[in-house]
């Protein structure tokens, strides 16, 4: 019986590893490609293990056509849109979770509905708005758009986190003479730090990965790295090795982040409907 069990376990391990390999193989291939000189890109049979060589990275991130400014744009947009989203969102979430706001259920319902809106339906009027207030091709314009996309998510998730804080703790603080905002700043926010951190990371990631709004609202100086990466496509001769090097730089933070928030991924991507 025990031997049979061990055999089953080994089989399960093999299956799990095969599944994982299928799933990450393209990213491994991306890393390999980023180290290859141009001639090796088209080699048949393919070169499996290239020599580690950072030439492509140096080429793409230095000199006249450096992609560095777009990386800065991405960082700025993701960082600031996350900051605004989490601050404005946590206020609203706190209001919904802790105060007897009239029509609360309706507001919640509406906020959740906004979350479901397809960006492609919003992006045309957004373009017109940004054009008329002269924010096309700026980081500010894209930040404003991303905050709009991510605010419903942040409010909905943070409301859930705030509701988990027992009422007694806050009531005790209020009786001891705290204002509601003192209670929020000193008790509720510190107690929901894991929640705030998770939501911040998710919001950052959504903004970091976003393509459509960045494509439409920015053109030259304001574009983010995903837009710059997609531009490798449009050339007739795609410079795969360059594309790979730039992509690897862009993808590394996300890989790290995935491990940090692994416990919350299901919850975040299903808007809290499924907990792990």
């Amino acid at each position: 019986m025990n031997r049979r069990k061990r055999k089953v376990n080994i089989l399960i391990y093999i299956l799990a590893i095969v599944i994982v390999l299928i799933s990450i193989f393209p990213i491994v291939w991306l890393f390999f490609t980023s180290f290859k000189p141009r001639v090796d890109i088209f080699a048949i049979p393919p070169i499996w293990l290239p020599k580690i060589n950072f030439e492509n990275y140096v080429n793409e991130f230095t000199g006249g056509s450096s992609r560095l400014p777009y990386l800065y744009n991405s960082i700025k947009v993701a960082l600031f849109s996350t900051l605004v989203t989490v601050i404005v969102g946590s206020l609203a979430a706190y209001g919904i979770a802790k105060f007897p706001v009239p029509g609360k259920k309706n507001w919640e319902f509406w906020i959740l509905s906004v979350r479901m809106m397809p960006p492609v339906a919003v992006v045309i009027p957004l373009y017109m708005i940004m054009r008329s207030i002269k924010l096309l091709d700026t980081n500010t314009g894209l930040i404003l758009a991303h905050v709009g996309f991510n605010l419903p998510f942040a409010i909905w998730m943070l409301t859930g986190f705030f509701r988990q804080i027992p009422k007694d703790i806050e009531e005790a603080a209020l009786i001891d003479g705290c204002n509601w905002y003192q209670a929020m700043l000193r008790i509720s926010l510190p107690l929901s730090t894991p929640g705030l951190a998770t939501i911040s990371i998710f919001t950052f990631m959504f903004s970091w990965n976003e393509l459509l709004a960045a494509l439409v609202l920015t053109g030259r100086s304001g574009k983010t790295l995903p837009v710059a990466i997609s531009e490798y496509w449009s050339n007739t001769q795609i410079r795969w090795e360059a594309m790979a090097a730039v992509s690897v730089v862009y993808v590394i933070p996300i890989i790290i982040v995935t491990f940090v928030i692994q416990r919350y991924i299901v919850r975040g991507l299903t808007l809290g409907a499924v907990k792990q």
Partner: peptide, 30 residues
């Protein structure tokens, strides 16, 4: 209390109005 709560969610509601509801109406118009 309900007034305080409303003040807290007001910024988000205004924001979402300008970035979601207004664009939708504008899309219908266009």
């Amino acid at each position: 209390l309900s007034k305080t709560g409303l003040i807290l969610i007001l910024p988000s509601i205004i924001y979402l109005f300008f970035l979601s509801l207004y664009p939708t109406i504008y899309t219908v118009f266009l």
